[in-house]
Design a binder for these strands. Structure first.
Lengths: 265, 265
DNA sequence: GTCCTAGGTTCATTATTCGAACCTCTGTTT
DNA sequence: AAACAGAGGTTCGAATAATGAACCTAGGAC
């Protein structure tokens, strides 16, 4: 692994649950030597991607990240456009809504609007979702570049729960269904007790760049509710796509597209 | 320079003005070889800190930055707390307000609320401000850790305009005045025609972690206006400090503190 | 066609990274 | 108070990863 890769892996150790970490723990969790970890941290601190709390000497994510994220957001306002739509949809459906952006083979959760209910699904900003096993992933696969989808399906597909669809054929079937309906549906494929529907968010070239998902406790879901949520998710995702300059119209019907995508090899 | 430092320097080439850059230009601007640049970019892409636009093959900041910034923000909600206060102050004063956070020896502009006027000061999110020569920098020095201030003043002090106060004594004088008033004032020290007042934002330990500044065209400023802006900036900065759990009360009077800070060596 | 510049890759050379062992400090146990 | 444990941090010879000149291909411009 490259030195830069190691440095980035240090950044990824900081989570909502553990936003400040000491040197030894960082080294342990990253599988690196303490001296190496320290050298990388110093480089990251100089780049302002990490800060060190002077009192506790623990490390945390740095202000440079806020700065870079703002620069990115000004150019490519994914979160800014998606957040209000997600809030509105969470209010409308009464369920947790989360928005993910595709990057390097996975979906990154970049915004979450929690349900107001006590019994709700909790999703954390920062969570990384696989492309199979989640409604978001299937929705993404149903509308992304075909070659990328094939490449992903060629790799190993982990099983996260007993319900995870982990076969290439099963995933393709789900993708076809998602392409036909415009939204995907997944029950307990990634976490027990969670039901999700998701719709793709489109970029300017008509391909998916992310997803919007509605996640509910399975106990509240029947087919009628799922269909209503799915259609609402599609509407919300379209609104975000439009806000980003994404084109949706030119896609044609879902099933055409599904056949196109999954025809290769 | 470390490999990681080089990778970070690549990130810093992306700005509001130029958010997508090609390989050759990145290499040129970073002063690196094309092969090296490419290798670093691949590592950054794998870490999702950079993305490559498939059509143009140009590079831009990646979704991982949004994700990491959100994790940081949840733990340390500087921007989230400061942004609405800055907007309110921009409305109240009719001038551009910008909020900066200290990191690695400089102030990073992390939020800007522009004046509604046609003739206004424009500040970009992402701009890096020195600690001398700007009202923000002086305000920060007046309330930060004394050792850090001394270390900074020990280094070279660039002159940005003919008006820049670039002598150690001059800066210390300005810092003392800022500590006495609670806010700093600077006319054309960083950019011609720009007048600023700034107040420090405090962290939980009573030391400055950032600043809030009001920037106006010099033509609109006289002493009375500057004082009004300064007092408003102090109020706004206090509000942000309080929102962050920062303590302000225990500081004592400004001049006591100034003497304390600048007494060393 | 020829020239220019772009993105991207190769591989012998070279400089940087690595990590076991070490130091220091703080808080806890005996 | 002595011994211990685990924290943060540093050192320096050995090992590995980074480097960059030269190269390839592709797309304009003329």
């Amino acid at each position: 692994m490259s030195t830069v890769g190691k440095a980035v892996s240090l950044l990824e150790l900081f989570t909502l649950a553990e936003p400040e970490i000491g040197l030894s723990e960082l080294a342990r969790n990253a599988g690196l030597d303490k001296a190496t970890t320290r050298r990388l941290l110093v480089a990251l601190i100089n780049g302002r991607l990490v800060e060190q709390e002077p009192r506790s000497r623990r490390y945390r994510l740095g202000a440079g990240l806020s700065r870079l994220a703002r620069i990115r957001d000004a150019h490519f306002p994914f979160v800014r456009v998606a957040a209000p739509v997600a809030r509105a949809l969470a209010l409308e459906t009464g369920e947790t809504v989360h928005v993910s952006e595709f990057s390097a083979g996975a979906l990154l959760t970049v915004d979450v609007a929690l349900s107001a209910k006590a019994n709700r699904v909790n999703v954390d900003v920062g969570q990384v979702l696989p492309l199979h096993g989640t409604a978001s992933g299937i929705a993404f696969l149903s509308a992304c570049d075909g070659a990328a989808a094939d490449a992903y399906l060629g790799g190993p597909l982990d099983k996260f729960t007993p319900h995870t669809v982990a076969s290439r054929e099963g995933v393709m079937e789900a993708v076809r269904a998602a392409a036909a309906h415009g939204y995907s549906r997944s029950a307990q494929g990634y976490e027990e007790g969670v039901h999700s529907v998701a719709a793709p968010i489109f970029g300017a070239d008509g391909r998916a760049i992310g997803t919007l998902a509605v996640a509910s406790p399975v106990s509240r879901i029947d087919d009628a509710v799922a269909v209503r949520q799915g259609e609402a998710a599609v509407r919300a995702a379209r609104e975000i796509s439009a806000g980003l300059g994404g084109e949706v119209a030119r896609l044609g019907t879902g099933s055409e597209r599904a056949n196109f995508i999954l025809s290769g090899n």
